[in-house]
């Protein structure tokens, strides 16, 4: 894994994605000049802080690294608050401080692997699907609220089967949860792997099924972060007695450095 670095990068362009219903949700692909680091693992992330944050927004924001070429680095984001709102105004030529690659990344095995994505939780799987040597072993279940074209699913669709379920009416969520459990049980029987990324309630459901069905499952958390490097202790989650490092069992561990990906039985999401 490459050593993380911090650099001031130039925005190449910002491309809006799809059309969303509400006025307050917007989706963008942000294309940046390539940083000095090139090696990264799917599931790792970076901190992004446009110079336009000035002094009034002190923190960078964490985003999944999803694609890098010799020329550029791409991330996808949804506008949800002050920071992403300001990011939605980025123009080519603007400067953005980026530090990464951060965190640990997902496990990759030559086994049937079920990818569970909720909303923008799909982002880390773009890189995952492209890096995996056996794409035929991968399937994805994608739950989302906005129209499918708001999300960067195309490049995943090209390589693996994606079953998407839009949550727009009452009962949709129950359907999603039902298929979630069935699919997890299937993969479990094949001694496969489940990887999940999405909002907290979604991860809690996946975790509950993982423990119940005893399926090897990894969860990627999206806690609020200030530093991204393990220093502020603001992003912590509680580990369980199964945590591999003895000194850190039943202890708050930094999601930015010990995660964002954790085995489902090693953390508590309560």
């Amino acid at each position: 894994m490459s050593q993380p670095a911090s650099s001031l990068l130039t925005v190449l362009d910002l491309v809006p994605f799809g059309q969303s219903n509400g006025l307050d949700t917007q989706f963008f692909a942000l294309r940046l000049e390539r940083p000095s680091w090139t090696a990264w693992k799917p599931g790792q992330f970076m901190m992004v802080r446009p110079t336009s944050f000035g002094l009034d927004l002190p923190w960078g924001r964490p985003f999944g690294i999803c694609h890098m070429t010799a020329q550029h680095l791409i991330c996808f984001f949804q506008v949800v608050g002050r920071g992403t709102q300001r990011m939605a105004a980025l123009k080519s030529g603007d400067k953005v401080q980026v530090w990464g690659p951060l965190g640990n990344g997902f496990a990759m095995e030559d086994k049937p692997t079920l990818l569970l994505a909720g909303g923008m939780g799909i982002v880390p799987f773009i890189g995952y699907v492209h890096e995996h040597h056996q794409p035929w072993n991968l399937t994805m279940l994608f739950g989302h609220r906005q129209p499918l074209n708001c999300y960067p699913v195309d490049s995943i669709n090209e390589r693996i089967t994606v079953d998407s379920l839009r949550e727009s009416a009452v009962g949709d969520l129950d359907n999603l949860i039902f298929s979630l459990r069935e699919r997890m049980a299937d993969v479990g029987e094949q001694n496969g792997l489940v990887l999940a990324c999405g909002p907290l309630p979604f991860l809690k459901t996946v975790q509950q099924f993982a423990l119940e069905l005893k399926v090897r499952t990894q969860l990627s958390l999206e806690n609020k972060m200030a530093c991204g490097v393990g220093a502020c202790l603001g992003c912590v989650c509680q580990s369980t007695e199964n945590y591999p490092v003895a000194a850190k069992r039943n202890w708050p561990v930094q999601v930015c450095t010990h995660g964002p990906v954790f085995w489902a039985d090693q953390i508590s999401l309560d």
């Binding site: 009034d56 927004l57 002190p58 609020k224 200030a226 502020c232 202790l233 603001g234 202890w251």
Partner: peptide, 17 residues
């Protein structure tokens, strides 16, 4: 082990911890 979460909050030109 410190305090329960959330432990940090961004405020205008600052933060609370």
């Amino acid at each position: 082990s410190g305090n329960p979460t959330p432990r940090i909050a961004e405020t205008t030109s600052g933060m609370l911890n």
